[in-house]
């Protein structure tokens, strides 16, 4: 029953008919309509995508983009007073929480990978990151090779976790793997000299460094292990909701609004400490804005 509704909604949206409200609702949109509320999964230390400000409220580039999506949901469902709930998630629990219905969409720093697409859906990419290493300058680590025999931290459940394991094999170096609960936890290990390097998306490391007590003490080094697209995560096979999110995000990218938001979060001072990440838009991201895609890596 549910499936046939999905298929119907899919057909309608592909031939360009806007679905006459209620009857065709399915999946997440139907759930939101019935509950009168939408639950947004957010991160706590994915600076500047989705993190907590001085008052412990979730803010960031991804949160701003998602606010636009929520506006679109409100007008789609004709529910201007739709309640918006927030639920903090971690790298480990975000996918199960999406599947069990605790969150309706996740706005953070989640890599869209083929492996994850078996379990959840992704919107078009709103950011492209490179996986690199964050180190203390006084540690002397400059490249992957320098890590031999050293403790290296990564955040549990992230794709970097798999990357370092593969790289470890390929380069035949032996590192001691440590795991942080969240990105800040991992960074704390580098900051306190517990780990020699933090292998993670460069922008997240940059955000953590900028917010640290002594930003000058850290550096991002080494080659890019891989480029990874970030997308809004949603439930698998939920075509109507995905269409709505994609339409909203694509619209923002085409209109130049997405770039404005990018400037706001990446090129200007941001809360809570008013630091400026000075992280200009990469050519890959410009290309992704010009031709939005939801292709996953690997």
């Amino acid at each position: 029953m549910r499936k046939s509704l999905t298929v119907l909604a899919l057909c309608l949206s592909t031939i360009g008919l806007s679905a006459p409200a209620q009857a065709q609702l399915s999946g997440t949109l139907q759930k939101i309509k019935e509950a009168g509320a939408i639950t947004v999964g957010h991160r706590e230390s994915s600076v500047p995508f989705s993190y907590l400000d001085a008052n412990q409220k979730p803010i960031g580039y991804a949160m701003d983009l998602c606010a636009k999506v929520i506006d679109a949901v409100k007008s789609e469902l004709k529910m201007p007073n739709l309640e918006v709930k927030y639920q903090a998630v971690t790298s480990q629990n975000r996918i199960p929480l999406m599947q069990n219905g605790t969150i309706d969409m996740e706005c953070g720093s989640t890599t869209n990978s083929i492996a994850r697409q078996q379990q959840v859906g992704f919107s078009v990419a709103y950011f492209i990151t490179s996986v690199r290493m964050g180190v203390r300058k006084d540690s002397g680590v400059k490249d992957i090779g320098d890590l031999n025999g050293k403790p290296v931290v990564t955040t549990t459940g992230t794709t970097s976790d798999a990357l370092i394991k593969q790289n470890e094999k390929g380069k035949a170096i032996d590192v001691k793997n440590l795991y942080g609960k969240d990105h800040a936890d991992s960074f704390l290990m580098v900051e306190s000299s517990r780990a020699a390097a933090f292998v993670m998306d460069d922008i997240l490391i940059a955000g953590l460094i900028a917010n640290s007590k002594t930003p000058d003490a850290f550096a991002i080094v080494g080659p890019s292990l891989r480029d990874e697209p970030y997308g809004v995560m949603l439930r698998k096979d939920d075509a109507p909701f995905k269409a709505l999110i994609d339409k909203t995000l694509t619209g923002l990218m085409k209109s130049g609004e997405a770039e404005k938001l990018y400037t706001k979060w990446f090129m200007n001072p941001i809360p809570p400490r008013n630091v400026n990440l000075n992280f200009p838009m990469s050519p890959v991201l410009k290309a992704a804005f010009a031709t939005p895609t939801d292709k996953g890596v690997e």
């Binding site: 706590e44 993190y51 907590l52 800040a184 704390l188 900051e191 306190s192 917010n211 640290s212 007590k213």
Partner: peptide, 12 residues
């Protein structure tokens, strides 16, 4: 709560 502040401000 203490852990979240630690994560943000790195003052364990």
């Amino acid at each position: 709560a203490a852990d979240k502040i630690t994560q943000r401000d790195l003052r364990p």
